[in-house]
Computed example of a mutant assay.
Amino acid sequence: MKYEWTDSYCLSKPGAEKDYKLEWDATRYMIRGKMFAMQGGDREGKPILTIKLEPFFGAFLCGRYKDIVPGYYMNKEHWVSLYLDGDVPDETVREMLDQAYRLVLESFSKKIQKEICS
């Protein structure tokens, strides 16, 4: 499996936390309970990382990379799934995770954003 660095990268973000959801057999990355990424598997058990993105960026990536597909078991407009055995450049995956984190962080009030980032 590639992208072993994603766990530490997600957790390096201010206020990021993770848990394991047994019912989904997936590790979730969240800010105060709001998920920005999730690592699990598809129906065949292939490892995937599902990431929240702006719809236009997600659609662009799905069209560009065969290893990025609309979010598995998620809202297909706002989430994409990255196959962890794929060939998407690390820098693109970092950009995806940065955007996901930022989208969730910006959903909080300015006061809470300040608390999280301080």
Rank of each mutant, 00 (worst) to 15 (best):
M1T: 14
K2L: 12
K2C: 02
Y3W: 05
E4F: 10
W5Q: 09
D7G: 07
D7W: 05
S8L: 13
Y9D: 05
Y9W: 08
L11S: 07
L11E: 07
K13H: 06
G15I: 02
G15C: 06
A16T: 06
A16W: 01
E17T: 13
E17V: 11
K18P: 00
D19C: 11
D19M: 08
Y20N: 05
K21H: 13
K21M: 10
K21I: 13
L22K: 15
L22V: 13
E23S: 14
W24H: 11
W24Y: 15
A26D: 04
A26M: 10
T27R: 15
Y29S: 06
Y29H: 05
M30H: 10
R32Y: 14
G33T: 04
M35A: 08
M35R: 04
F36N: 05
G40S: 07
G41D: 06
D42R: 02
D42L: 03
R43G: 12
R43T: 11
E44F: 10
E44P: 00
G45A: 07
K46P: 00
P47T: 06
P47N: 05
P47M: 08
I48G: 07
L49D: 05
L49N: 09
T50A: 12
T50D: 11
I51T: 03
K52I: 03
L53K: 02
E54Y: 01
P55F: 03
P55K: 06
F57Y: 15
F57S: 12
G58M: 06
A59E: 15
C62R: 11
Y65K: 08
Y65G: 07
Y65I: 06
D67T: 03
P70E: 07
Y73R: 14
Y73A: 13
K76C: 07
H78V: 01
H78G: 01
W79K: 04
W79C: 04
V80A: 07
S81C: 06
L84G: 00
L84P: 00
L84A: 01
D85R: 12
D85V: 04
D85P: 00
G86F: 01
G86D: 03
V88K: 04
V88S: 04
P89W: 09
D90L: 05
E91I: 11
E91Q: 12
V93P: 03
R94C: 10
E95P: 00
E95S: 14
E95A: 14
E95F: 06
M96G: 00
M96D: 01
M96L: 02
L97I: 11
L97Q: 08
Q99K: 14
A100F: 02
R102E: 14
L103R: 09
L103P: 00
V104I: 15
L105A: 01
E106P: 00
E106H: 09
S107I: 02
S107C: 04
F108C: 02
S109P: 00
S109K: 05
K111S: 12
I112T: 13
I112L: 10
Q113S: 02
S118C: 09
